[in-house]
Amino acid sequence: MEFRVCSVLSLFIIFFLISPRARSEDSGSVFFIDGTGHQFLRERSPDHEVEKPSLLLQEVGAAVSILLGFSPSSSLSAAGSSKLDEILVPNPFKRPRAVLLLEVNGIDDRQIAQYNEMFSNAFRSTHILGSDKVDIQFRDEDDVSVLLLDEPSKDCTEKEISAFASMMGGSYASNTQEPLNGVLTIPLANGAMVNLHMSKKSEREYVVALLSLVRNVERAIQMHDDLSQSTRNPAELLMGCFSGIKALQEQDGAESIVQDGVELLLVTLTKILGSLQEAYKGQIVGVIYSHSRTTQELSKTLDFVFSSHNAARLLAEDKALNVSLAEVVFVRRTLAWVTGLILLISTLIGICYLLNMPLTRDTLLYSNVKLD
């Protein structure tokens, strides 16, 4: 009896130790959405849905670097290069130099592909391995312009909510007695309607996060217009992390509202990508990385960093010499006079030798034309 109990406990301990590792290895899916009219990604094979190749987070970051027109990290393995070759067009002169990199927390891969046609037709890679944070490295701040899409926003106005509702084909019924406590109604792709009550904390946080994302994308489009009129031509990275689904998951009985929130987010992302494609004239690729974990379990996994320049090596005194300024001036003047005298004496000796040189053919000056 004791042996059976010990065996069961041992198996339970082994399973407990292994299961977190297994969960950390599979950390979501990534969707590559090509530009309109410009093929920056390879055509998908008919077996793509069956293959569903796995990628490392480092390889996702390397793909973003390549799309921006930069060389990937030197730590990229040969196997990783082969995987990226199956996704990206090999022509180095055909890069969009603009990428929308958005990390979405709390969404399962099946939820995205099931409810949205654009994502279901995108180049999808499941089983993203690795849970450690990955930094996309850039050499110079002048080479790439980075705009963060997850800048915090305290709140929103009813005017912004109404404008967002109109953009999505919905409506906003404001509360005349209590401002910002109305009901936002948005139609979904399947014909259903989702009602978000601003009076509920979780739904309000979700709407604020969604409006912040839209607002930051509009700011990115304005920045792109400014850069297109300037002499600079940097690559553009629009980068952010959306965590609004986490707020809905904390609500009691949140299954239905979370599903509606996921569908509304996907419809909003479709609108956002359409606006970006129009503003960038198709010269932009969307990279959406989704995973079911929340920010409470894991912070933002994809970030960027600028590598510092190699500072010029300058000669400097290791230790200060205990000498006066007059002594330093005396030594320098002495070296200058001695060097000048040596050059003067050498010049005079050279002139004397030239003046007294015999004028015969059998000299070094005429050795090349010596006949006998």
Rank of each mutant, 00 (worst) to 15 (best):
E2W: 07
E2Y: 09
F3H: 09
L9H: 08
L11R: 10
I13L: 15
G28E: 04
V30H: 04
I33C: 00
F40W: 03
F40D: 02
Q58Y: 04
E59Q: 13
V60G: 06
A62S: 15
P72L: 10
A79W: 05
G80Y: 05
D85V: 03
D85N: 15
I87L: 15
L88H: 06
P92M: 09
F93L: 14
A98K: 05
L100W: 02
V104G: 03
V104H: 05
I107W: 00
D109L: 11
A113Q: 11
A113H: 04
F119I: 02
S125R: 12
I128N: 06
I128Q: 06
I128A: 08
L129F: 07
D132T: 13
K133C: 07
V134H: 10
R139K: 11
D150H: 13
D150E: 06
S153I: 12
C156M: 10
K159A: 14
K159S: 14
S162R: 12
A165W: 00
M168F: 01
G170S: 06
Q177I: 02
E178A: 07
P179T: 03
V183W: 01
L184S: 01
L188G: 06
N190D: 15
G191C: 07
M193K: 12
E203T: 01
Y206D: 05
A209I: 03
L211D: 00
V214D: 10
V214L: 06
V217C: 01
M223A: 13
S228G: 04
Q229D: 11
M239R: 10
C241G: 05
F242G: 01
S243E: 12
G244R: 00
G244P: 01
G244F: 00
I245C: 01
L248E: 00
A254K: 05
E255S: 14
I257F: 04
L264V: 12
T270N: 14
I272W: 00
Y280F: 15
G286D: 00
S290N: 12
S290W: 04
S292P: 05
T295E: 13
F304N: 07
F306H: 04
S307G: 08
S307M: 11
S308E: 14
A316S: 13
V323T: 14
V328H: 07
V331H: 09
R332M: 12
R333W: 09
R333C: 10
T339K: 10
I342L: 15
L348Y: 09
I349A: 12
I351P: 03
L354N: 08
P358W: 06
L359H: 08
L359Q: 09
L359S: 10
T360E: 13
Y366D: 08
K370F: 11
